[in-house]
Structure formats: C-alpha cells, structure tokens
Amino acid sequence: MIGFWTLFYKELLRFWKVAFQTVAAPVLTALLYLLIFGHVLEDHVLVHGVRYTSFLIPGLVMMQVLQNAFANSSSSLIQAKITGSIVFVLLPPIPYSAFFAAYVLAAMVRGLMVGVGVLLATLWFAELRVVAPLWILVFALLSGALFGALGMIAGIWVEKFDQLAAFQNFLIMPLTMLSGVFYSIYTLPTFWQRLSHYNPVFYMIDGFRYGFFGVSDVAPEFSLGVVFACFAVVTALTLNLLKRGWKLRT
C-alpha cells in the first residue's frame, strides 16, 4: 500500500508543482470558450428550455475534466519514458493494479480540480441550477477515471510527444468536441444524431448535464451504464498491457 500512496503522491506533486500550466491554464481556456460562445449565442438559443450560457457550462466543465485527466497520465508516462526515469517505477515491487490506480487517481484529481475551477469561475457569468448533485459527482468521477486510464494507454503506447499530440488532436478532441459540449445533439440532422450515440463522451456530458438541469437527451441511468461499461473495458485493457509490460519492459 505504501508503494501505491507514494506513486499517487508523486503523480500529484508532478502536476501541482506546475499548477499554473496544469490547472490555471485550462480554466482560462474554458472561460474564453464561455465568453465567446456565450456572448454570441446567449440571446438566440434556448436548449431544453435552458439559456445557452448556462447550458454550455456543464459541457465545458466536463470537457476540461476529460482533457486534463487524459493529459495528466499520458504526459507523465511519456515524459518518464523519454527521460528514462520510468525505470524508477518499473524496478520496485509495485503490483499492476496499484500502478494503475495511482496514475488514474492522480489524473482524476487533476481533472476534478480543473473542473471545479471552471465551475467556480463561470458562476460569475451565469447562474447555474443543481438538481441532482450525486449524478454530477458520479459522472465527473467515472469520466475522469476513464480518460485517466485512456491517457495511460496513450502514454504507454506512443514514443514521442508529437505522437501524443496526434492522439489528442485526432481522437480525444473530436470525441469531446462532437459530443454535445456546445449543443444538444437533437438540434443535429438525423445522421449526426445517430452517429453521436456511438460516442461515449456524449453520454458523459449528457448524464453530467442532467445533474444540473434535470433534463437530458437520454436517461442518465442508461448513460451511466454506457460510461461504466467503457471504463470496465479500458481498465481491463490497461491492466493487461501493464501485466505484459507492453512497451514498458523491452
């Protein structure tokens, strides 16, 4: 257990020592999105009977939770691989499950810190209802964990930072952007609506938003099921990669 706590603590320190880049910067990015889109569209759009700026906030929060959870575990692993300091965590007798848990939990902490930061900052600009806080918490935690684990896979897989950027630009960004952060998918043409249902991030944001407004495109229980299933699959895959030492142990 001490091995796990140490690795978890080390991972927290790693982003906390540069919190300006890892926490403050993403909060600012989300605020800019809110100011620009909110300003342009506030007067024209009601979604599910909610004013656009308010509608936008949970999506932005979730988007930053996901992207930062992913960034944390992936950049930590790839940096350690490139500098070679990965040996320091490969030599000790840390079980795979503890290794996995430490990276994923640290990623969740960073994701949630950014998420809370975005939420607090945006409260200045729009009022926000909270109908079902438990749903909010559950979706934030589970989605952060899922993207933390995805970040581990990416960090183990890629060999250079530009490959990681490709992973982020061609997979993570489209998945999050095309998931209903900026709109309700029911405003989309049928084809794109159908396609959105194959995007797991859609369920994360939809369920998360339900916690705030009590309305959603699909039932939150269903969304939870989808997100949980994805998490289970990704966890099983990551543990298997760690067990085999894939790309970590030559």
């Binding site: 257990m1 001490i2 091995g3 706590w5 140490t6 690795l7 603590y9 080390k10 320190l13 790693r14 020592k17 350690a80 500098t83 070679g84 300091s85 040996v87 320091f88 965590v89 030599l91 000790p92 007798p93 840390i94």
Partner: peptide, 21 residues
C-alpha cells in the same frame, strides 16, 4: 537518468516509498 521534478532527498524518499518503506 533522473526525475527533474525533485531534489536528492525527495528522490530517495520517494524511491523508499516505492519499495514500501
């Protein structure tokens, strides 16, 4: 190889922790 985030003592404390100490 080294981890640029830490000083010498931190490095050794963290390494001890990994080994359960």
């Amino acid at each position: 190889v080294f981890d640029p985030f830490f000083n010498v003592r931190e490095t050794l404390q963290i390494q001890s922790g990994y080994f359960g100490i």
